[in-house]
Design a protein around this nucleic acid. Structure first.
Length: 573
RNA sequence: GCCCCCAUAGCUCAACGGAUAGAGCAACAGCCUUCUAAGCUGAAGAUCUAGGUUCGAUUCCUGGUGGGGGUACCA
């Protein structure tokens, strides 16, 4: 439809150009304009601001320009276009016919779970890396942000037609881990080790490392043993803690709705990366103060250490090694890595150094960032141990929801399932509704609320739609998808449903699920209004079948949309 | 110091350079014998500052103020 309107407009302009000199001077090839959805449905179903941008070149009033184009279009009598309007300051607005909407709704019902799919990225293979944990550190709200956005983007990319391989890159070797191992040994927690204790040990070890010289030396020596895999008591503690942390990571990400096609460990990439760095020293990397650095300052960046003076690869080297592993292991068109914005500069350096080693590495790799989470004014830091853990948050929300549904007449098991899905939905949505690059101020009350612009509101709207369709089964006998033209006005919600694929594309282009989140909220809100003023299950209503089809299309859209956000849907709540 | 990002209502967030800057929360006034009130309806409330570019600037450019990130052996 969009393309049809565009071509008609171009045709109009060239036709007018054959009659009028000033129009003829326009360069048709350079005429670049878009048909858009108006910001408000009252401005029609499609709009363009073309006339305003042409007005300057034509030395005419925008309204006159629009008027001439529209006069031509009206004479054409374009099918499925009911009305064309010129509105100040110079918009051309198109109103589509009921027949058009009827056809579109029928199409959605047929597509069902495929509704929203596009071929934007068809035939492409993407590697998508997210939710990389630091083993031996707790999975906290920061990881929740990365997981929520990463998981959703991976799904959006898939919906756009690409094959997606999801990866995670656990940090299983680092000085931070040595601190934790030291603390576990020091506290004698080796046998009673669990996730909770590991978290406490990390905080304790970090503090002691900073404050106590002897401890610092001891931890440095443990670090060496771990990197070199020297048989020792520390290595045993390390192995045990690593296994515990990894199990925990798998458990929590699964609970959040993520699964990974592969894990690549830093201990593995450190070795690969070190080889690359050594091979390219001194051509790309160089020695400095006993370490090997990359002179980023020569490329407008900054110098930083790739192999430290003890001979161990840093985070930078690990990411260089990871590049090689990815390219050796997979065939793909693009690799996307999403991390916290604090790693933005780090990846600029990785990309530059990587480019010098192998240009394809940089060309096919994209590093994107999400915003930082600040927590009631202060910076959250797992080093300080002042971070709310993902698991604790989920449990707290669950508890509130269980209280709320206490009086309802469901089996206990179902209540639990509802509370789990609603809790995770609430947390995820509170993250996803913000632009992905923006910092988020974490507010427990707001992140766990279930009224207004929240995840549970969306889930609730879907439950309502499901419930209507369920009840309708008793009324509905005909099973055909074919609809008749609507008798009354086309409801706004029906028009909004059609925008779904274009919104998915916005989220893809900006790498930000918030477009989808806010669209789904507006859609649910419009549906709720419709629901409040229209008795849908009313067979006497001449639009009964249309309304029912609308609810079904709404259900499909919302369900597919929530899936893209990584939020689970419910039968009732 | 240098490099990068951000500033919208009391709070938390929206707005391809375009129409009257949209929501939610909080506060105020209403609506449950009728498809689930986690809902609906109504009224109130905002673009940090000084310039510039543009037919048109919350959006682009420059300066200022305020905040965040990075800046050699953490990730």
């Amino acid at each position: 439809m969009k393309e049809l309107l565009k071509s008609k407009i171009l045709e109009a302009i060239s036709k007018i150009g054959s009659e009028k000199e000033n129009w003829a001077s326009l360069n048709m090839a350079e005429l670049n304009f878009e048909m858009e959805y108006p910001r408000d449905e009252k401005f029609g179903d499609w709009t363009t601001n073309l006339a305003m941008s042409l007005a300057g070149k034509l030395k005419m009033n925008p309204l006159e320009v629009a008027g001439e184009i529209v006069d031509f279009l009206k004479a054409e009598n374009i099918s499925k276009v009911e009305k064309i309007e010129v509105i100040a300051p110079g918009y051309i607005n198109f109103y589509l016919s009921k027949e058009y909407f009827k056809k579109e709704i029928e199409n959605i019902l047929t597509l069902d779970e495929k509704w929203g799919e596009t071929n934007e990225l068809s035939d492409k293979t993407y590697i998508f890396e997210h939710s990389s944990p630091n083993l031996f550190k707790p999975f906290h709200v920061g990881h929740l942000v990365n997981n929520a956005i990463g998981e959703s983007l991976a799904r959006v990319i898939k919906k756009s037609g690409a094959q997606v391989v999801t990866l995670s890159f656990p940090s299983d070797i680092s000085p931070g881990i040595a601190k934790t191992v030291w603390a576990i040994k020091e506290k004698g927690w080796e046998d009673e080790m669990n996730i909770q204790k590991i978290g406490e040990a990390y905080v304790y070890g970090t503090k002691e490392y900073k404050e106590n010289e002897t401890v610092k030396a001891a931890i440095d020596s443990i670090n060496k043993k771990l990197y070199l895999k020297d048989e020792s008591q520390e290595l045993e503690i390390y192995k045990k803690g690593q296994a515990l942390s990894l199990d925990y990571f798998k458990e929590i990400t699964q609970r959040l709705g993520s699964s990974f096609d592969g894990l690549i460990f830093e201990s593995e990439s450190e070795e690969v990366g070190k080889e690359i760095v050594n091979e390219h020293t001194p051509q790309i990397f160089r020695e400095s103060n006993g370490a090997i650095i990359f002179p980023g300052s020569e490329y407008g960046l900054f110098d930083n250490v790739f192999i430290n003076s003890q001979g161990f690869g840093t985070y930078l080297t690990k990411d260089i090694g990871l590049l090689k592993i990815k390219f050796d292991k997979f065939k793909f068109d693009k690799s996307i890595t999403i991390t916290d914005v604090e790693q933005k500069e780090h990846f600029r350096l990785v990309k530059k150094a990587g480019e010098l080693v192998n240009k394809e590495w940089a060309d096919k790799s994209e590093y994107i960032q999400h915003g930082r989470l600040t927590f009631s004014g202060e910076k959250i830091s797992s080093r300080l141990g002042n971070v709310p853990l993902a698991q604790d948050l989920i449990e707290k929300v669950k508890e509130r929801i269980l209280n709320k549904i206490d009086g309802q007449d469901f089996p206990v098991e179902e209540k639990n399932e509802i509370a789990e899905k609603v809790a995770i939905g609430a947390l995820k949505y509170s993250i996803l509704k913000c632009g992905a690059g923006r910092n988020i101020i974490f507010d427990f009350e707001k992140a766990t609320a279930f009224e207004g612009d929240t995840g549970p509101y969306l889930q609730y709207a879907l439950v309502r739609a499901n419930s209507i369709l369920n009840n309708a089964k008793e009324l509905e006998t005909e099973d055909s998808l074919a609809l008749e033209e609507r008798k009354g006005e086309t409801p706004l919600v029906e028009k909004m449903i059609l925008k779904f694929p274009s919104v998915i594309n916005n989220s893809l282009v900006d790498y930000s699920p918030h477009h989808l989140a806010s669209y789904l909220f507006k859609l649910s809100s419009e549906f709720s209004s419709f629901y409040a003023q229209t008795k849908i299950l009313d067979t006497a209503n001449p639009d009964f079948r249309n309304n029912l089809a609308l609810v079904r299309a709404m259900q499909i859209t919302l369900r597919n949309g929530l899936e893209l956000l990584g939020m689970e849907t419910l039968r009732r709540m």
